[in-house]
Design a protein around this nucleic acid. Structure first.
Length: 541
RNA sequence: GGCCCCUUGGUCAAGUGGUUAAGACAUCGCCCUUUCACGGCGGAGACAUGGGUUCAAGUCCCGUAGGGGUCACCA
């Protein structure tokens, strides 16, 4: 009895690995092209970090003329949920990160790990027949016991060396146990020695030194599915990944992965480990947590109504901080024209800054056309805000509102997310204005009730004319100010503050607040035009 | 605890031995302005710490402190 017999017993009727090597040949790509992937798990929770990884991978693939694909890692059957795969794929599509290959398209599939069982078995069989892997019959209880013994003896924990009980089990005994139906897993027989150091060059982190791996990790679980480590090696080899980008929680497994690739006879890909997205928590930072932080979920941005363009734009800032400069110089260029340099990525975790996200979003939205603002806000409101949705029912009218001070050199930057919009445009809708509490209006400087009445009355009796152009309109505002003892120009007032009751700005604020209930609004002239004479007069009654 | 990594203003960050140590967000002041934004100008604010190496250290080396990651039949 030898390793071959053992391999055949464990994996009968499994194709030889050479079959897969031929089926998934090296990709025929131009020099310098990189093949990248993102490999999420369908747990029902889509982490913002997954999107971040996707953006990075797609950018590098696109700009090198390579391939970006999405592989579903669902070997943990316990955490898997029903629509998980669709949700992930939809999220990538929605954010413009459409993969070149994934479930349903591409020649290197299947792209779902649970459908690749035979492939993993084929390579596991290869390892067993070469004596590089072996069945392990240890029970969880035995492993636990071994672990506590290690702790007592102050030795490194794990399945290695003398602690690896099944590592040197005679083949005949193993065969016997299997034939008797004793449950087992398949372990990798690590040739490593931690006394030896290896030097690894990470594309993002630079040189890292670690001891060689000597852990006999499980490669095939008792349910027959591979563990992450083994699936990673087999899949990224067969899918011909050239650059493995992933979150840096994986760096500590690099020695293992390198060893696995080597022992399997695979060409080793490049690795780039990205710093995780962090969150300020009291005095310290920690990883964005899906349990504690709502903003860790992609769905949060959808619900808040932060446009997908804003999220992508913000994440580009984190990927390469010089993106910001580039954007300033090229406000209208497509994001694809920006060249990402993976080596410039930060090596330590960046705080995910919602304030900055909002700022980025304000800029992004300020570049949208009124039509685009309308469409996006409407789509959001249909799902999340029925009142806003109702307000936006009248498209033509809404478009006029959203078009105020938009499209010019210095567009307004007041909307960060669609959930802000209702408050910003509320007063423009007559039936909503009616609901506002007039007594709660804050008039800033001029607060005397009779003075306010006097200003409003005089304005509408003597000056207001709906056909005035903007210049005439504003000149009349100055006339009004003058007539009531306010300075016609702010400068005049500042030069002689005691000579006037106030200035034209104070007057126009009174009109503004009376008509809108707010002192911070866009251009008053535009507002008056849009509201129309009838509505305006109704409001001052 | 072992192993690995990291540390420049409140935050994100330029920086590859010689810089008055960029820029952005936030903050403050001024200007522009009929309000609020926008925009412009300016202010305050940083190389964790101790030793070395060097003519010269944010940058290289060592120690210390702090932070993060990882040590599963989860990925």
């Amino acid at each position: 009895m030898d390793y071959k017999d053992l391999a055949n017993l464990i994996f009968p009727d499994i194709k030889d690995y050479t079959y897969y090597e031929e089926k998934y040949p090296e990709r025929n790509l131009p020099e310098g092209a990189e093949v990248l992937r993102v490999a999420p798990s369908p747990t029902g929770f889509i982490h913002i970090g997954g999107l971040f990884q996707g953006l990075l991978a797609k950018k590098i693939a696109d700009q090198t003329g390579g391939v970006f694909f999405v592989r579903i890692e669902d070997t943990d059957q316990k955490r898997k949920i029903d629509n998980g795969v669709e949700e992930i794929l939809n999220a990538f599509e929605k954010y413009g990160l459409s993969p070149d290959e994934t479930v349903g398209r591409g020649n290197y599939g299947p792209y779902i790990q649970s459908e690749r069982g035979d492939i993993y078995k084929s390579y596991a069989k290869k390892l067993i027949s070469e004596g590089k892997a072996y069945p392990c019959f240890c029970t969880p209880e035995e492993l636990e016991e071994s672990r506590s013994n290690q702790e007592k003896a102050k030795e490194r924990t794990g399945y290695y060396g003398k602690w690896a009980k099944c590592r040197n089990m005679p083949i005949d005994m193993a065969i016997e146990k299997i034939k008797n139906g004793v449950p087992y897993v398949v372990r990798f027989r690590s040739p490593g020695n931690p006394e030896r150091k290896i030097k690894h060059k990470d594309v993002i982190k630079g040189s890292i030194d670690f001891p060689e791996n000597d852990l006999d990790i499980i490669i095939i679980k008792s349910d027959g599915l591979p563990t992450y480590h083994f699936a990673h090696a087999v899949d990224d080899h067969l899918m011909r990944t050239t650059l493995v980008t992933r979150s840096d929680e994986w760096v500590s497994s690099v020695p293992l992965h390198l060893q696995l690739f080597y022992e399997l006879g695979f060409k080793i890909p490049k690795y780039g480990h990205t710093a995780p997205l962090m969150k300020q928590d009291g005095d310290s930072k920690r990883k964005l947590s899906k349990r504690k932080d709502p903003e860790a979920a992609v769905s949060y941005y959808t619900e808040e109504g932060i446009p997908k363009e804003s999220v992508i734009e913000y994440m580009m800032n984190i990927i390469n901080s010089n993106f910001e400069m580039w954007r300033k110089q090229n406000p209208d260029k497509d994001i694809n024209e920006f060249e990402v340099d993976i080596r410039k990525m930060g090596v330590s975790g960046a705080l995910f800054d919602m304030v900055k996200m909002h700022d980025v979003s304000k800029n992004v939205i300020s570049r949208f056309s009124a039509e685009k603002v309308y469409e996006d806000a409407k789509a959001w409101a249909e799902v999340y805000d029925s009142e806003l949705n109702e307000m936006l029912e009248n498209k033509e009218y809404s478009l006029r509102i959203l078009g105020i001070e938009r499209g010019n050199q210095k567009p307004r930057k007041d909307i960060a997310k669609w959930s802000d919009l209702k408050d910003i445009i509320y007063y423009m809708y007559p039936e909503k204005f009616n609901k506002m509490d007039k007594n709660a209006f804050e008039y800033q400087k001029v607060t005397d009730k009779s003075e306010i009445e006097k200003i409003v009355k005089l304005y509408f009796e003597k000056y207001y004319n709906e056909n005035d152009d903007k210049e005439t309109w504003f000149n009349k505002m100055k006339d009004l100010a003058g007539e009531l003892g306010y300075a016609r120009e702010v400068k005049e007032f500042k030069a002689n503050p005691d000579g006037y009751k106030g200035h034209v700005g104070d007057i126009s604020t009174v009109i503004r607040v009376t008509l809108t209930g707010k002192c911070n609004t866009p251009d008053l002239y535009e507002i008056i035009r849009i509201l129309g004479k009838e509505e305006i007069l109704r409001r001052v009654k």
